[in-house]
Design a protein around this nucleic acid. Structure first.
Lengths: 222, 222
DNA sequence: GTCTATATTTTGATAGAC
DNA sequence: GTCTATCAAAATATAGAC
């Protein structure tokens, strides 16, 4: 044991500090823009320590990606296990995705970058986690179609219609902050809830078959 | 004159070749991932030539960004000049954006990356071009609201709901191609038209006030 | 306008002591 | 597990001839 500084109980381990610092750096700068030196400084360790815990910059990056996509996958699968009508599940699916996007700020930019990169860093286990997300939505849509409440839609198109606005909105937080003086404040102050409402409304409208559109009982005029 | 190779009439200039090569490299790898050497090779010039035409890697990147955002801005402003009802203009706005995204494949990944980067490379003139896009949509929405056919919506939220899915879908082309063996072919074969239809339907539903929802004349049952 | 050769800095990664 | 010192490759940029 000797003179080694002992970690306080409950305090994050060195490995955890590295992971946290790396997530911020990768999210803010992307894989190529992220610098190992900066990650080490942020984590208050030296580079050698970082390479003791992770084989390479790539391995570190993929560890984080896998963790984050795993969380999303678990979040949406929990929605399905919770049951309920297809409409309810679809709504909760969107909310779960939004929840992840807003509570884990590093995730949206990372996802956007991976898309732009053509999946260059997406190792098979990570792709598998993404598949669980799309698969969950596909199952909800299939249920709805079988029950006659959804028309037959392409799950990929629906998925994009849901995920893209949420990621985009969450990721543009910093940009909106940066250019706030150029745009009327009330417009910029759009809250997360507004985009969720928008996506829910848009998605439901796109998957609802014509014969199930809003009924006359809700209409006010001819 | 001497022994200098003369450019064939109509053939792209050296500068143009550099710009084209750089656009591909930046789109595929991002600013930090893009390498000046690779751009030079792709453009069939040497590095010194590249630095003769452009002050720096950053200057080259921003030249391309400004050009691309300028094209989008002109495309959507043309929609507005064309006139028509707010609904028509909104639809054409979406189609114009989609057209740009699909015909200029480098643009969607570049836009996604800039979002993820928090606008680190967005010089004021580029921001100004983006403003023209949002401004155009804002005007269409305001017209519609004044005419009573749209409810009052946050233009930024609507903008995100339109732009994000289109960019995302266009940018995921390569990823979908890459993992085509993991997903049923018919799902992957979603065409651009499907996402446009989805976005149009979703957006119109989100901006349409309750009293103007699909009328009973279109409904088939109680 | 174009090329070769090179300067300079940054960066991912490691050796080896403690 | 942790640190100092350092290597080797890569990458941006430029000098200077033609």
């Amino acid at each position: 044991m000797a003179a080694t500084a002992r970690r306080a109980p409950g305090a994050p381990t060195t490995r955890d500090r590295i992971l946290a610092a790396a997530a911020e750096e990768f999210a803010a700068r992307g894989f190529d823009g992220a610098k190992v030196d900066r990650i080490a400084v942020r984590a208050r360790v030296n580079k050698a320590m970082l390479y003791y815990h992770f084989r390479s910059k790539t391995a570190l990056y993929q560890t984080i990606l896998l963790d984050r996509f795993g969380r999303v996958a678990r979040a949406v699968e929990a929605v399905r296990e919770q049951g309920g009508s297809p409409e309810i599940q679809l709504r909760r699916f969107i909310e779960a995705l939004a929840g992840t996007a807003f509570t884990q700020p590093q995730f949206p930019p990372m996802w956007l970058r991976e898309i732009a990169d053509g999946g260059r860093h997406l190792a098979p286990p990570i792709v598998s986690e993404m598949g669980r997300v799309v698969g969950t939505l596909g199952a909800i849509l299939a249920d709805g179609h079988a029950a006659g409440v959804f028309r037959q839609v392409n799950p990929l198109v629906t998925q994009v219609g849901i995920v893209a606005p949420l990621l985009f909105f969450a990721a543009t937080g910093p940009v909106r902050e940066r250019f706030k003086q150029l745009v009327p404040a009330d417009i910029l102050n759009a809250q997360g809830q507004e985009i969720i409402t928008h996506v829910v409304a848009g998605t439901l409208a796109a998957v609802t078959p014509p014969h199930a559109r809003p009924s006359a009982s809700r209409r006010q005029q001819s």
